[in-house]
Structure formats: C-alpha cells, structure tokens
Amino acid sequence: MTLSIIQARVPGAAPPPPVLHGPARLPATEAPRALVAGIGFRHATSADEILALVAEGLRQADLPSAHLAALATAADRAGDRAIRDAAEALGVPLVAIGVEALREAGRRVVTRSVRIEALRGVGSLAEAAALAAAGPDGRLVLPRIASAGATCALAASGDALPS
C-alpha cells in the first residue's frame, strides 16, 4: 500500500504545497471508516509504540479498528519513519496538519500540556491534529492518552459515530 499524506488547511488560507500523494483507497468491502487518530510523538518513538497507543485508544473508546480512517500529526513530523510505518501498518492514510490548522483546531482541545503549548501553540497536539483532520464539525471521541513517547486522541467527523 502506498502512503498518502494530505495537507490539511484552515478555510480561507492559501493552499499548502503538496507533500506526498498515493493511492490509499479502501476496498469497497471494508466497514465504513469515520475516525481519525491524532498522534503526537517524540523523535525516538517507534512505530510499535504508536501502534500500541492507537490500539489502546480504540480499546478505551470501545471502537473497532475498522472505524479508523486516518492518522494525523503535525506536518513537520509527517515525514518521520515511525508515523509513516504506523499508518502503513494500519492501512490508513497519514494526514499532515499545518500549523494554522493545528492552532485553529487547538481552540477545541480539552487537555493541556504546558510543554506542547509552549512548543506548538496548542494544548494537545494529538487532540488538535485529530480535530483538524476530522473537520470543522469533528468532535473528540477520546481525549489525549499517552505512552512514554507518544500521545493519541480520537476524533470523529460530525455525527459519524454514536456518542
């Protein structure tokens, strides 16, 4: 499977340059997907740690992995091997969220990290990435959870999943 990286943007902002493109289409026989896992991670984090954290998030939200539509992270981290390998292992595209889109979605996060707020201007990178990728009507299904080197939050588009 070829990995897709999609650049999210704030409505009205200039379109960003494309990052990577490729076919990451779902077979028609798969269950509908509506869920985005936002991921924040440190440079030394492995794909296995990200995968374990996503699995734990889905378990905590009591949602099947078939609902997972994408991973999302900050655009400047989307080229990192660990996040790309995690997306590929899950069979979902990777959504690269630009700074403006992160900050816009950051207004809706529910958890706050002083460190990430100082570095990124948002309280939770994972929550902001998930919300930005889910769109303006997206809602958090699972606030940020953390492992030693990563954070994960789950968001759904509008009413795509039951409350």
Rank of each mutant, 00 (worst) to 15 (best):
D85A: 14
A87N: 04
R107L: 01
H67K: 11
A75E: 08
G98S: 09
H67M: 12
D80W: 02
R112V: 13
E104L: 14
D85R: 11
R103P: 13
A66T: 13
D76F: 13
D76E: 15
V99M: 06
G91S: 09
T73Y: 10
G79K: 05
P93C: 06
R77W: 10
A96L: 05
G91N: 10
R107T: 02
T111I: 07
V109L: 15
G98A: 13
T73L: 07
H67Q: 10
I83T: 07
I116L: 14
L90I: 10
V114A: 13
E100I: 02
L102W: 03
A101P: 11
I116F: 00
L94M: 07
T111Q: 06
R103Q: 15
V109S: 15
E117T: 12
A87L: 03
H67I: 06
A72Y: 06
A105N: 05
L90S: 06
L71I: 04
D80G: 07
G106L: 04
P93D: 04
I97H: 06
L102E: 02
V92C: 10
A75Y: 00
P93V: 11
A96S: 04
A74P: 02
T73E: 03
R115A: 14
V95M: 12
V114Q: 12
V92G: 10
D80I: 05
I116H: 00
R103H: 15
V99W: 06
A66E: 10
L71K: 03
V114S: 12
S113Q: 10
A101C: 13
A70Q: 04
R112G: 09
A69F: 01
A74S: 08
A75K: 03
S113Y: 08
G91L: 12
E117V: 11
A86M: 08
S113G: 11
A75C: 09
A96F: 02
L102M: 11
A69K: 04
G91M: 12
R103M: 15
L90M: 15
R81S: 09
V95H: 08
A70I: 00
A87I: 01
